[in-house]
Simulated scan of single mutants.
Amino acid sequence: PQCASITPVCVDLADWGATEAALQDVGPIDLLVNNAACATLQPFLEVTPDKFDQSFDVNVKAVLHVSQMVGRGMRARGSGGSIVNVSSQASQRALREHAVYCASKAALDMLTKVMALELGPYQIRVNSVNPTVVMTDMGRLGWSDPEKSNTMMSRIPLGRFAGKGPDTPSSHQRTRRR
């Protein structure tokens, strides 16, 4: 491992019982970064209950659950800590076929504010970051089409998505190729 003091834990975060079992023997946690997410793109009129539940289970409910477990430990130790929730700019802007993803990230932003309010007195800082599209496999799924991505990239001062890989050229590279 790159950092011996970090132990990865692999678990389906939508499964509360499995999550509790996986975190039961993990030592004291001073910093938690909630970065797991899922997105299924569906037009608003075609959103299905299973995809809605999956998004909210992973993008909101899992953050609440893991943060409760970690936050209780931080509070009990009395030494404070920090929780960072990775949200998205999609929480603040409507995107076609992203109704459920946008809604789940907006819910995460408000959850973050409530967590900060309630955990602050215990010296537990809670913040969220709202990056643009990150070109992971999930990001490529929704944003590889230049017709869709050019509008979004035109609003980004750097003119590119985060983590841009070789198969997703920046808008500057696209302009040169035309």
Rank of each mutant, 00 (worst) to 15 (best):
A76C: 00
S79I: 05
N59I: 04
Q42C: 07
H65P: 15
S88N: 13
S87G: 13
N34R: 01
F52N: 08
V58A: 05
S79Q: 12
V84N: 10
L31W: 01
L32M: 03
A76K: 07
N35D: 03
T48H: 02
V33I: 11
Q42W: 04
Q24L: 07
T40G: 13
S88K: 11
L64R: 11
D53P: 10
V63G: 15
R72H: 10
M74W: 06
A62E: 14
I83T: 00
E46L: 09
V58G: 08
G71A: 05
F56G: 11
S79V: 09
F52R: 11
A37H: 05
G80R: 01
D25V: 05
G78K: 09
L41V: 03
K51Y: 02
S55T: 08
A76R: 06
N35A: 03
E46D: 15
A37T: 03
G81Y: 03
D57G: 04
D25K: 08
L64K: 14
S88Q: 12
L45Q: 14
S67P: 15
V70L: 07
V86L: 14
V86G: 15
R75K: 15
Q68R: 10
R75C: 10
N35Y: 01
R72Q: 14
G80D: 02
V86I: 15
V58R: 01
G71F: 01
S88G: 13
P43L: 06
D30K: 00
M69R: 11
S88M: 12
K51E: 14
N59L: 05
Q54H: 10
F44L: 15
F44G: 09
D30W: 02
V60F: 04
G81F: 02
P28W: 02
